[in-house]
Structure formats: C-alpha cells, structure tokens
Design a protein around this nucleic acid. Structure first.
Lengths: 239, 239
DNA sequence: CGCGGACTTGAGCCTGTTCAAAAGTCGTGG
DNA sequence: CCACGACTTTTGAACAGGCTCAAGTCCGCG
C-alpha cells in the first residue's frame, strides 16, 4: 500500500519513510529520493521483541538494518559462555558490517525495538555508487570506534563504582533528551546486561547502584526507572 | 633529490615511494600515480624515537601519517594519570582521525619508528575526490573497530593469564611472519605498557609471564625477546 | 494469593593490587 | 674491562576490591 502510493510521486519521498526515525540517519540521509525509493521497495519493517537476536555471532548475514525504535546491544560470546557487550546502538543507527559477510558479534534487541531491514547486495551497490553514503557510513564507523575506545578505558582502568556511574551517564545522555540538570530515564538493560557491559557481576552492579542511591546520586524506582538529580555529580563520579 | 627525479616521469611512481612499506597500504595503495606524486611532494619522512609523542590527546592535529617502520601505540589518559592503551598500529597502517580535528587519544611511538607525514587538508581533499580512498580508509576503520571490540572482550572478561597470553598471541601474529608452529619475536612494549594495554599492573604482568615461562609455553630471553614453541598452545590459553 | 524471575543483601574467598625489596640490564666513564 | 648508577623487571608478603555461593526480598502476573 505504501509502496503503491510512493509509485505515484516518481521523485518523492516514500510515505513509509516520511515519519521514519531513520529518514535522516546515517544511511537514508545520504540517499537521493530515487535511491530511497528503491531501498524502500526492498525493505521490510520488522518488530523485534526484547531479547531476540537479529544477527548471530559467526553467522553470515545477507542483510543490514536501520534501527527505527529501541535499543540494540552488540555482544561477544566466548565458547565457555562468558559474554561481553561491546556496543549499544540507538535509533537511527545503522546495524551491519560492510565489506565482511561473517559477523564476529551478535546483535540483539535490548528493548522491544523496530528495525528496517534491507538486502546487503542492494546497499553494497549503493555504497559503491554513492560517495556521500560511503562517507556517512565511514563517519559512523569512526564514531563507533571512538566509543569503543572510550569504553576500553572504562573496562581497563575504572573501578566498579566509576564503571556503573559511567554507564548511567552514557545511557542518560543517549536515551533521553535531558533537562538542564536533572534527568530521568528507563534503563534499556537488565542488571545482568549491565554487568556484561561493564565486565562485572550482577551482584557488584547491584551493590554499586544501591551505594549511589544511598549517597543520593540517583533515585531508583522500579529498578528500571532511574532519576539523576545532578548530572554533573554523576559525571564527576565517573572520573 | 627524490622529488626532482620523480618530476621526470610525469606519470611514474615517486622514487621515495618505490621501496616504501606503505606504498600499497591503506592510503597510498588507493591513489593514482598523479595523486601519489602530489602527496609525496607534500610529505615528510620523519624518524621518531621510542616513547616520543606524535599526536597529543586533546590537541588539534593538522596532519596525518603512514607508519613505514615500527609500532605506534594509541593511548587514553585519565586526569589522575591512569592510562589505557586502546590500540596498536603497525606498518603500513594509516594514523589519524578523518573528519574530526581534535584527537581524543594520543599516538606515541612504542618502538623507534618511521612515519610519512602529510597535511590533513591535502588528504581530506583526496578523500573527497577518490571513492577508492574513502573506501580503503573506511575499511581500515572497520578493521580497527573489530579489533577494539575484540579487545573489549579481553579487558572485560578474561583473566590475567588469558590477557597476557592474548597479547603475546596478538603481537606474535602481527609483528613477525611466524613459521609453521613456533615463533620468535621482540616485544614492542615494556612491561608497563603491556600492563596499560591489559588493564593490569606491572607486577601481575611479570608474574603471569614467568608462570607461562615455567609452564614451558614461552621462553624469555632479555625480557624483550620471546620464543613461542607452540602457538596453538598459546592460543588455547588465551581462551 | 502464590508463583517465577529479577534484583538485593550477606559472608567468606580469591584474584589481582599495593608496597617493598632484590635482581637484572644497559649505558657511561674511569 | 669493570664499576657505578639509573632503570626495568622480578619476587615476596600483606591487603582489598570484586567474585562466588547462598539467602532473602521485591514485583509483575496468572
């Protein structure tokens, strides 16, 4: 239906894209209307429940996606079951690994989410034809690289308390449009996932959270909903 | 002199580049002869002693470089002095952060090294004009991202012993063309630098190295020169 | 209301740190 | 050629931050 309508406006934006979170994101923001239309014709919107896997570690993936709602976590798993989250992605990020088919990590919905899925071949062709798109994806890759390296510092050199404070700060600044000083948000991650992100155990994460609560740095409601009265204080504790 | 000679062959490879380690690397391998010539005309070969800084964290850098010899370490430093190495780069890697002028990390020679330095403006222009170059740099960025995430797993989830074994394995496979099974190489890093890479202390690194030595997994000569009789064994210990 | 999963709390332990000293290593100069 | 001094590395002993194991509590949901 949406596709049929967009056929009418040869050069117009597909209706499905008009109100899309990712319309001006890394991929779609770099496309011409004609390209957007073609991509849309081969795209599929998909709802994914929290916890369900989008890409499996070690598998060959023949598609890419844009996140249009929710949070996606990127995980690495060791054969013995130890796990590390190596990245979080929010709408309207692009998910996928250009140039290499086999994935060295898994992508999993952290919250209920919505993604727009399209074939690898098609986007690969567009990348080759569209310097602007290549540039845009290159830019996202470099930003993710900066984020990964920042996180390496956290994993290697910060204490448990600093780690937890860092994560809360990260999520507060990414997930919610914070007000001037105070911020409130829902954690997209369970305690177990936070632990896997920070290289800690569930118990340590829990203890550090209650320590922060008792110090008045955060308020915890429902264990998922967090209020930060003073973001500067939180950042100071993150070191 | 080299420049003068290369002027003669309008379309030829500059002589300075003919025997260069980086000639077919990420940047120069993607350039036309004319571009290579232009880049060469504005390039400067520079020797850097081990320990000297190439780019300072927080500074604005107006140049990029190619590594033509040696090993460069990328570091992040906290205000209180804690430090984390977030990447190692070997010849013929490209060093620099396209699109962003201010560096969030410092680049420092780990060994005596040689780099080929060229102006940021010039390469930025070439990137914009040369899809192949953009693609090549994009590719390096994605490879570095994979490496960074692999290292996040190491930092977050591996034990001290596994960390040390992982680093030895990494260096063995990058620095030296290993023989079938056994490998010998010089460590480009001091114990302190290894500790900063692995998120450990000097003492723990030293203890784990002697443990590996006593188990016969490695031989240590001069504390910098390492022999690995069986790489598979080392990899197994890295988990 | 009772069940199940997620989260919190507690006690003891262990890995890796801290602090301290000894042993190499290397360059310099007598 | 060896002695000296600075620095890196190794080794030792005590400590502590975070882990493990084990209950207990909270909360959503049928």
């Amino acid at each position: 239906m949406d596709v049929a309508r967009s056929e009418v406006f040869e050069a117009g934006t597909p209706t499905a894209c008009r109100s899309c979170q990712a319309r001006h994101g890394v991929v779609c923001g770099a496309l011409s209307n004609a390209q957007l239309k073609e991509l849309n014709r081969h795209s599929l919107r998909r709802k994914v429940d929290a916890g369900s896997e989008i890409i499996a570690q070690g598998s060959e993936s023949s598609f890419y996606s844009n996140i249009t709602r929710g949070v996606i976590k990127l995980c690495k798993m060791m054969p013995d079951g130890r796990q590390q989250i190596v990245g979080l992605q929010f709408a309207p990020d692009f998910v996928g690994r250009p140039f290499v088919r086999e994935s060295t990590l898994s992508a999993e919905a952290a919250t209920d989410a919505e993604i727009c899925v399209f074939p690898r071949n098609l986007l690969d062709r567009m990348i080759a034809e569209t310097p602007e798109l290549q540039r845009s994806l290159h830019d996202q890759a470099l930003n993710e690289l900066d984020a990964a390296r920042e996180w390496m510092l956290t994993l290697g050199r910060r204490t448990a308390e600093e780690k937890v404070a860092s994560l809360l700060h990260l999520i507060a600044t990414h997930a919610e449009p914070q007000t001037a000083i105070s911020t409130a948000f829902d954690l997209p991650l369970s305690r177990a996932e936070i632990a896997d992100f920070l290289g800690l155990t569930i118990e340590t994460v829990s203890r550090q959270m209650t320590r922060l609560r008792k110090r008045g740095v955060i308020l915890i409601e429902n264990s998922r909903h967090i209020v930060v009265p003073d973001m500067d204080e939180l950042q100071k504790i993150s070191a």
